[in-house]
Write a protein that binds this DNA or RNA. Structure first.
Lengths: 188, 188
DNA sequence: GTCTATATGTTGATAGAC
DNA sequence: GTCTATCAACATATAGAC
């Protein structure tokens, strides 16, 4: 608020939000910096004051994606009290995230160049860390291996759901949770 | 081979091959129809005689990807004789495919619009069918559920490897195989 | 029937004005 | 901090050469 006519106030966040909306509507292929500018009501050059370019804006969307994932998954894990159920809850929440926030899912995993963006890699690692405590209890010899396996199967089901290989979200969620329990049970 | 000066002989396949090479070198972001034309030594308009556009060429690459996957995975499965080992072999082969054919992996799963391309969806389903016999033996009540879980975890590990979450291909391959065995063991 | 030449509109990005 | 040019590269379409 102030001089909204010229200055936008918070153009950076407005651009990120427009990008999320655009990708939600048209998919990550339909994303373009020009269209984001248009929707935000600024010129095509304006975003370059806040981002070094197209990929930098997408990186900001990815950061937001990881933050949202961390919040959702840590909440889901906190609501379960048995370690095995925490893994299952994580897997289910990962599938729900793909359904409820398709744009954030696609940008984070539809992989653009994460190379050289240490902050993004760190954010991605932090998401997996929410499984650490449960994994330490269940498999003290190789906790990270257990984390990876559970995250991998959850992500695979999420992708199958978005790809249409699995039709119902409930099926994907249950499949991911069941697989997480099976993996946790191995050599337990 | 007759008049190579003008007619290309097999421009369609040459374009697909150039596209694979280009994506291998620069990633799926670096793909452009113009660059593919340049490398193949034809004008930018030539591809339109064989493909309706950019996405149609990518779809042809995806078809080739699924064919390659089907061949690799069915071979891997055929070499294992216990059903559980067939699942593990599939998972390992899926990870190897991501390493050895990064372009084919990215195009098939880096998901562009598969909507309305029935042939592509069918090819994708056929890849999973190579696990059917083993799954029928191990879990007759829900064979497809077992197929999905194994394919999901394999795909997840493959993606983590390509994303740098897992550093070594051997780790990813072993993780995927071990998870496949664990999933097969559940309620067996 | 297969490719080239050429043209249009869109995009990502830069430079300089306000 | 944002705008108005402006540029090269790209996807796509059409008409015509061989």
């Amino acid at each position: 608020m102030g001089h909204q006519a010229y200055h936008h106030g918070d153009l950076r966040n407005a651009l990120v939000q427009s990008a999320v909306d655009l990708i939600t509507e048209r998919g990550r292929q339909g994303f373009s910096l020009a269209e984001v500018s248009r929707r935000t009501g600024v010129s095509a050059a304006a975003p370059f004051r806040h981002f070094t370019g197209r990929d930098d804006l997408l990186a900001a969307v990815a950061e937001r994606s990881y933050a949202e994932q961390e919040e959702r998954f840590s909440t889901a894990v906190a609501h379960a009290h048995q370690p095995v159920e925490q893994l299952a809850a994580f897997a289910g929440a990962a599938v729900r995230f793909a359904v409820e926030e398709p744009a954030l899912f696609d940008v984070a995993f539809g992989g653009f160049d994460k190379a050289g963006r240490a902050e993004l890699e760190a954010a991605g690692s932090r998401v997996l860390q929410v499984l650490r405590p449960a994994a330490e209890l269940l498999r003290p010899t190789d906790p990270f291996g257990l984390v990876l396996a559970v995250a991998a199967v959850a992500h695979g089901f999420a992708l199958f759901l978005r790809d249409g290989v699995v039709e119902s979200a409930a099926t994907a969620e249950q499949g991911a949770s069941a697989a997480a329990r099976a993996i946790a049970a191995a050599e337990a």
